[in-house]
Design a protein around this nucleic acid. Structure first.
Lengths: 337, 337
DNA sequence: GAGTGCACTGGGAGCGCTCCCACTGGAAGC
DNA sequence: GCTTCCAGTGGGAGCGCTCCCAGTGCACTC
């Protein structure tokens, strides 16, 4: 390819000439616009086929002021947070919805300062028709960038602090409450919480749900035992919990990865799950199903999250005014609690 | 945003006018090109700041015939294969390398016919400056599309059948051989292989490596017990193996997910790992470390795979002629073998 | 018969940028 | 003193498309 004869791609003018029509007619024929006679439409189609014509998306973009692409921005210092299968599922959902609208997906992993700068430029330069932002932490520098964005922006999960106009979130509070209630309903009272990063809204909301359920049952909530949503952090948090509260009977972990880490620590400590300590997770990742024992967890519709974000963005791009969305969560009972 | 006063973005002409220079000078100043006096350069910079000017990437793309984006195409019938954390790591690597070259990442999940058609159009229309293709299976319809691509194409992993000019792959044969040799070195002789899809080159190559090692040791290789790289398929394959070869002593699984599935089946069957049956995986995913017992596996540099693909593509885009690359694998000994 | 409407047509002006090229004037070379 | 050179400059022609609009013919009214 690199060294190939650089035979220029045919242009619309050439198609028009070959079809014996004007450029305007050819353009209309290509876009299925009205005001083209059947004969000319067919002539254009023939010329397109003969010449192997493919419209130049860049030129089209310049003329229409529409890039045909939507950006998905994943913020975070550490690019490895992206390794969380959570994002892969969001992408699958978003990609499917964008495909329906014939938009391409630009994926921006904004980890470094340079990366964030590029995202900022993309947002300000109309390098895409719209953007979806995920995983904004407190004081995330990208939050400010969205203010000067020259395109609609949809948030995946609410950022900490402000509530944007357009977002799709999951019912974190309700899910955490259900999880905790499930533990309490089995007669347990010493139920602790391993929570995610408290500088994320998901981390806070899930702890809030846990606390609500505890208070409603007339119990003292444990102080938050903070992790960062990873397996090792869950293992560490569980270890700390066993030291400080050796009599703990139940644990709500605000993420499956952390729950699996807790399981590992418990096994190492010789505690039976769920007999000695019951564990409930959050997310319902693949790992929940294959954990040992299989994890009781709160299912959140991750793919739907991505899909709805993309749909909302498409609506905005089309000039509609959708409303923010909170997707339901539900408890999936397996063996760990 | 959607309803905002549509105050047009300032253009380069306006910047030039404000700075009291011509458009050419302004353009050169912006691109750090030579032939601009210090005074005018500063005047342009000032005007840019005052106007909040951001260059329009689409217009630039049209003029330069460079889109500033590279596509990463993940092929596959089922979008859920993308949920494999493997791809996330590839993306992290590719994203980092593209960022260095100031290219954006377009992610194309070509699952449906429609998706594939869009990818084909992207490749033929120069909708990106180059493309990286992953996970091409035998007879994948996208293989043909690359022939008429109007841009350089780099393959991640070799497709089945042909060997493209530019690809980055991992030493699958060598890795599988090392894994098998490790099992044999412990005196085991009845060593079976759970292999991945045999319509992928990775699946085939890894089985080949296993077979080579068995033959070299004067042993009869087991016939391939095929899985599809997922955990359940590994569990099922292990179950089948236990039925057909109850005396099996060691298993080489061509993927960590399948290895973890095998572990699950073995535990259910009451077989101790590694005492009764030793297991070696392939990939060194996160799950290998947290598996019970921790998985001995073949580490492959997945992030590097993505990074090198992107670097190779960047080189091609810049008119250089890089050579194909095969990245090394190494055995990581943990407890399962 | 002139008047009205409408499906169709093609010319031309952008979209906002890059880059070629012709031009200037002052420094350097002879 | 007169060329030669070259950093610096701005005009203008694209890049390949969309879309407005004025213009054409033809059917159909009154």
């Amino acid at each position: 390819m690199a060294e190939d004869a650089p035979r220029r791609q045919p242009t619309l003018d050439e198609v028009a000439e070959r079809a014996g029509v004007s450029r305007s007619v050819a353009s209309r024929a290509l876009n299925n616009a009205p005001h083209v006679s059947r004969a000319k439409r067919e002539a254009v189609e023939r010329a397109v086929r003969q010449l192997g014509y493919v419209p130049n998306p860049t030129a089209r973009a310049l003329a229409t002021r529409q890039t045909g692409a939507a950006a998905l921005v994943v913020s975070g210092e550490d690019p490895s947070i992206f390794a969380d299968p959570f994002f892969a599922q969001v992408i699958v959902g978003a990609s499917a919805a964008l495909e329906e609208a014939d938009l391409h997906l630009m994926l921006c992993l904004a980890a470094s300062d340079r990366g964030r700068k590029r995202v900022a430029e993309l947002l300000r330069s109309r390098g895409a028709d719209g953007a979806m932002l995920m995983a904004l932490r407190e004081d995330d520098p990208l939050t400010r960038v969205t203010e000067e964005a020259q395109m609609p922006v949809v948030f995946g999960g609410r950022p900490v602090g402000t509530t944007p106009r357009w977002y799709v979130d999951v019912d974190n509070v309700g899910g955490a409450r259900k999880a905790t209630e499930h533990l309490l309903s089995r007669g347990l009272t010493r139920v602790a919480a391993i929570c995610g990063r408290l500088d994320t809204e998901a981390g806070r909301a899930r702890y809030r749900g846990y606390r609500d359920a505890m208070l409603a049952a007339g119990l003292d909530p444990f102080p938050p035992q903070e992790g960062d949503f990873t397996e090792p952090s869950g293992a560490a948090a569980m270890a700390a919990l066993l030291v400080n509260h050796p009599d703990v009977e139940g644990v709500f972990a605000a993420g499956d990865n952390m729950a699996v880490g807790a399981l590992r620590t418990l096994r190492k400590a010789g505690r039976q799950v769920p007999a000695d300590v019951a564990v409930v997770g959050f997310d319902d990742l693949t790992v929940a199903r294959i954990a040992d024992p299989p994890l009781t967890t709160v299912h959140q519709p991750i793919e739907a999250l991505g899909r709805e974000m993309a749909r909302m963005l498409v609506a905005l791009v089309n000039g509609q005014d959708p409303t923010a969305l909170i997707l339901p969560t539900r408890l999936v009972v397996r063996s760990s609690a």
